[in-house]
């Protein structure tokens, strides 16, 4: 059974559950800081950076409404949807991996994280193809202000997926090396939170650039 009597410091620990349910599940402790404090400084800094980009988007949209009305129609919506499905699925895999680690099932967690890596690679390939498709359609950074915002926002996000994928590979290596266990896995939880942040940002970018007019 997972050691539910581990000291609860509120960070990356599990809380005790009733005996009958203990064999099934250990839930994250209440009022905890998931992962560690440092990763949340990073997450809020990143969210603020993207908030500024969204602010630029909104201001540009009200000043150049014609570009922002036509822009989404010229983009490849299929690529945007596939990117969204890939990232949401990658987040789902990370959540499954975290749940598996809490159960002590390290091998299953590793398999879920490989699914995340596969989803991230799919995202990067689709986005690369989308940029290639754009250039074939004559859509470039300086085509108009909508596409300048589009390239700045999506390429910035592209880089986050790239290095976030690297962090997931690091988590896989740490799992394989036995650094993370059912009781101690705050490093993996920090990486998981960072990955979910990347997914959350895309949840906003997709409708702003591909859907709203």
């Amino acid at each position: 059974m997972v050691n539910s009597s581990a000291p609860d410091n509120g960070i990356g620990t599990v809380k005790a559950v009733p005996e009958a349910a203990a064999a099934q599940e250990c839930l994250p402790a209440d009022n905890r800081v998931p992962g560690n404090g440092a990763v949340w400084v990073g997450i809020f800094a990143e969210m603020t950076e993207f908030a500024l980009m969204f602010l630029v988007y909104f201001i540009a949209k009200v000043h150049y409404p014609e570009y922002f009305d036509e822009g989404p129609l010229k983009l490849n919506t299929t690529a945007g949807v596939l990117n969204t499905l890939a990232l949401l699925t990658s987040s789902f895999f990370v959540a499954k991996a975290m749940s598996s680690v809490r159960k002590g099932n390290i091998q299953l967690a590793i398999r879920w994280l490989w699914g995340t890596v596969a989803s991230a690679v799919a995202y990067l390939l689709i986005k690369t193809w989308e940029y290639y498709w754009n250039i074939q359609q004559g859509i470039e950074v300086d085509t108009n202000l909508f596409f300048t915002v589009y390239y700045y926002m999506t390429f910035n996000h592209f880089l986050h997926v790239f290095w976030g994928g690297g962090a997931i590979l690091w988590a896989i290596w740490r799992l394989k090396s036995g650094f993370y266990t059912a009781e101690k896995h705050e490093g993996m939880e920090a990486i998981a939170c960072y990955w979910h942040m990347i997914d959350l940002v895309w949840i906003i970018i997709f409708p702003l650039l591909y859907v709203l007019r």
Binding site: P28, P34, S91, V94, A95
Partner: peptide, 21 residues
């Protein structure tokens, strides 16, 4: 839809439902 998707990821995938307020 953005609000719902965001909340679902924050609460369920990120597991912040019972995290620090």
């Amino acid at each position: 839809t953005i609000g719902i998707k965001g909340r679902l990821v924050v609460d369920r995938f990120m597991e912040l439902r019972n995290a620090h307020p």
